[in-house]
């Protein structure tokens, strides 16, 4: 990791403010904190590592350009970075018409009660997954959800589908999808409260 003279413990929002003023080192520190998360998320959405790199490079270019627009009142830096990376990844998926991936996600969830991103097939053993504590809690919370609730949340978040698209995909009434999504997110919020409070 590169040198970091003064900013090791800078709050995230300070880094964003410094980036907005043109401080490249601040961008580097933001990358050190959230680049891995963004890359992992992009991999989960786009599949190919080469594509995920483009997504992350694009996302951080956007972060750099639009840092001045970050509003701490609207949420954390982590959530902001995740939103940008996710949006970029979904754009890429859409532009390349990889939609069938999502169909597959539905099939996998339905048939095995197992989640798309949590059960990647053929993942090489040497891809050493260093799970942070947060990641472990989030995974456990997701795994604890009733499968139908988890499914609609994952199709929305990782697949980028709207509620009506999910309903069509699963051949379920729209109202059912809405109810599951709301109930699932509410349970996640309860389960993740400790993590959310630490991060706040």
């Amino acid at each position: 990791m590169p040198t970091h003279p003064a900013g090791v413990d800078s709050p995230d929002s300070d880094l964003v403010a410094r980036a907005a003023s043109g401080d490249e080192r601040a961008l580097g520190e933001l990358y050190d904190r959230y680049g891995g998360m963004a890359f992992s998320l992009a991999c989960a959405i786009v599949g190919e590592h080469a594509d995920a790199e483009e997504v992350v490079a694009d996302a951080f270019a956007q972060i750099w350009r639009s840092a001045a627009g970050f509003d701490p009142a609207r949420g954390s830096v982590a959530a902001w970075v995740a939103t940008i990376a996710r949006t970029r990844a979904l754009d890429l998926v859409r532009s390349r018409r990889r939609r069938a991936r999502v169909l597959e996600a539905a099939a996998v969830v339905t048939d095995e009660g197992e989640a798309l991103v949590l059960a990647p097939s053929l993942q090489p053993a040497d891809r050493n997954a260093e799970l942070t504590e947060t990641s472990a809690i989030v995974r456990r919370s997701l795994a604890d959800l009733p499968a139908p609730q988890r499914q609609v949340i994952e199709l929305a978040y990782f697949g980028g589908l709207s509620q009506s698209e999910i309903a069509a995909q699963l051949s379920e009434p729209l109202g059912t999808v809405k109810t599951r999504m709301r109930a699932g997110m509410e349970k996640l919020r309860q389960a993740l409260r400790p993590v959310l409070e630490v991060g706040a």
Binding site: C43, A82, V117, L131, T132, S135, L142
Partner: peptide, 10 residues
């Protein structure tokens, strides 16, 4: 946003 961390970490 936390869902992002549920992806396999790479």
């Amino acid at each position: 946003g936390l869902l992002a961390t549920a992806a396999p970490q790479i």
